[in-house]
């Protein structure tokens, strides 16, 4: 704070602080608090708001537990978000290892540019692009048929396949960068020491590199999982009728039923249950919150 004052003077410093406070309070905290408060109140016609029927209860939250379909959608959302997280790890780990320990350092700027360029295109466009790529008579099937990998076109957009592909593509970088940072901070001598002691490559990864990268794996996984479970765009564009995502139910409550109260309750349920799920998984893998913060 003193540093800020010295550098920019009182007027600018106060402006910075005020803008940050405004953003946090008015644009993050207050709307959430408003929704949180609303989630405990019933959905009533305007005339009855503030009337005798308008009291706090857990009814909106209980709605979730009384609808098996919603619970099922929630479970699928958790399961497939986990699948997305694992796939992101499987894709990002070798790449992160390559970038941090194998690639020549003069190649890195080019490689990172190649990785980042797709991010410059809006998520909506990228999802639509996948919609086209994955279509029954789309380029992917034509390619696979052409090189003879398959003899029947695959229906990519049934079930959760399209959603998984879209989410992995959208969020894989959130796994890559924490992993890259974690592996890069490993002393290369340790990898060589393991090899010198006779270790084959897979054991060096298992015993030396992966344990070191654990905090990076944890923070990448938490990010990918939470972003996937909370994603609305990709499931809306790439899901089929048989694959609904929990966020779509929240959206339906809010925009189709106009019931913001139940919608809010569902949104907080999602946050709460995902947090519990993540905490349990972190406990299972013996990751502490402080590891992630590193």
């Amino acid at each position: 704070m003193n540093d800020l004052l010295r550098r920019y003077g009182p007027v600018l410093s106060i402006l910075f602080a005020a803008l940050t406070a405004f953003w946090l309070l008015a644009l993050v905290v207050l709307p959430d608090l408003y929704l949180f408060e609303n989630s405990f109140r019933p959905y009533l016609p305007i005339s009855e708001v503030g009337g005798p029927k308008d009291f706090y209860s857990f009814d909106n939250y209980l709605t979730f537990f009384h609808s098996p379909i919603h619970i099922q959608v929630f479970v699928w959302t958790i399961v497939y978000s986990t699948v997305v997280t694992v796939l992101c790890f499987v894709i990002a780990y070798p790449l992160a290892y390559y970038l941090s320990k194998v690639a020549r350092s003069n190649l890195l700027p080019t490689l990172f540019l190649l990785i980042l360029v797709p991010l410059w295109v809006s998520e909506v466009l990228r999802s639509f692009a996948w919609f086209i790529i994955l279509a029954l008579k789309g380029p992917l099937n034509i390619l696979l048929l052409g090189i003879g990998v398959i003899d029947q076109p695959i229906r990519w957009l049934t079930g959760f396949r399209g959603v998984i592909i879209g989410l992995v593509y959208t969020y894989v970088l959130f796994m890559l960068f924490p992993l890259y940072n974690a592996i890069q901070s490993l002393d290369t001598n340790q990898i060589e020491a393991a090899e010198d002691l006779g270790s084959p490559w897979w054991r060096t990864h298992w015993r030396v590199i992966l344990p070191h990268a654990k905090p990076g794996i944890a923070s990448g996984s938490v990010m990918v999982f939470m972003l996937s479970a909370g994603s609305i765009l990709v499931p809306t564009l790439l899901a089929s009728t048989s694959s609904r995502w929990f966020t779509e139910i929240i959206q339906q409550w809010m925009f189709e039923s106009q019931d913001w109260n139940t919608g809010s309750a569902y949104a907080f349920m999602l946050l709460l249950l995902c947090t519990i799920f993540v905490s349990v998984v972190m406990r299972l893998f013996r990751v502490k919150l402080s590891d992630i913060a590193k």
Binding site: A194, E195, S199, P200, V208
Partner: peptide
């Protein structure tokens, strides 16, 4: 390197910080 009858002691030692002492020694 992992097939050679040599063992290298690195300048910075390169011990494995996440393993206890005995696992370090027994890694090979």
């Amino acid at each position: 390197p992992n097939q050679r009858p040599t063992a290298l002691i690195f300048q910075n030692l390169a011990l494995f910080p996440l393993m206890p002492v005995w696992e370090n020694i027994a890694f090979g």
